[in-house]
Design a protein around this nucleic acid. Structure first.
Lengths: 97, 97
DNA sequence: GACATATTTAGATAATTATCTAAATATCTA
DNA sequence: TAGATATTTAGATAATTATCTAAATATGTC
């Protein structure tokens, strides 16, 4: 479950898509603009994002509108915060290269 | 820079390592306990985590002590929060499968 | 110095994944 | 229904990555 989310976040194209969807919902075509990548590849990325439930899709006529599902991201942020909060300042001060 | 962090987070073994280091700093050997994986594979994961600057290492005699570098995780959490905060409740309500 | 312990590096292999082209599906309009 | 537009699915290929064994490096102890 978290695995699919982190896998989805690992690709820069997908993170760009999420950033754009953070601004507003968009069609697949709009999301592809300026992204030097084929339509099928883009579609593959949508599938990965949907599998992680990071985005939802809605057909509107010929277009498919994608929107961000913020709650999944929020949960993930929550997990990451727990991790960071486990770290004591004592341990931080010892961290050095 | 962010790419190396998200790539590092994409693997479940590495996330487990980070969770353990969130509790306390540990040697490579300790981190490997109960992890059905070879030493070299574990070492590979340490390298990926170090490349992302998510962990730091310190030699202590024969052992190498790994510790979490929380600041990189914090920055990443910050980026993810920005993304989520871009989403309006209007858009949220439209998100449906 | 020889040996044991802890860990890493080197190199090979198998699994995963990102990408592409071609073809299929869905919708709209004339 | 024919044609145009938007998007996806299928299938192949190339790149990336996780894993392993064997060997190397670093440290401590006798």
């Amino acid at each position: 479950m978290q695995q699919s989310v982190f896998k989805a976040l690992a690709d820069p194209t997908r993170r760009l898509i999420l950033r754009r969807l953070g601004e507003r919902s968009m069609t697949a075509g709009e999301l592809g603009q300026g992204l030097d990548i084929s339509k099928p590849s883009l579609s593959h990325h949508f599938n990965v994002l949907k599998a992680a439930d990071l985005v939802r899709s809605d057909r509107d006529g010929q277009s498919i509108i994608y929107s961000l599902n913020a709650s999944v991201l929020e949960e993930t942020i929550g997990l990451m915060l727990e991790l960071v909060q486990g770290t004591t300042s004592e341990e931080q001060s010892h961290a050095q290269r």
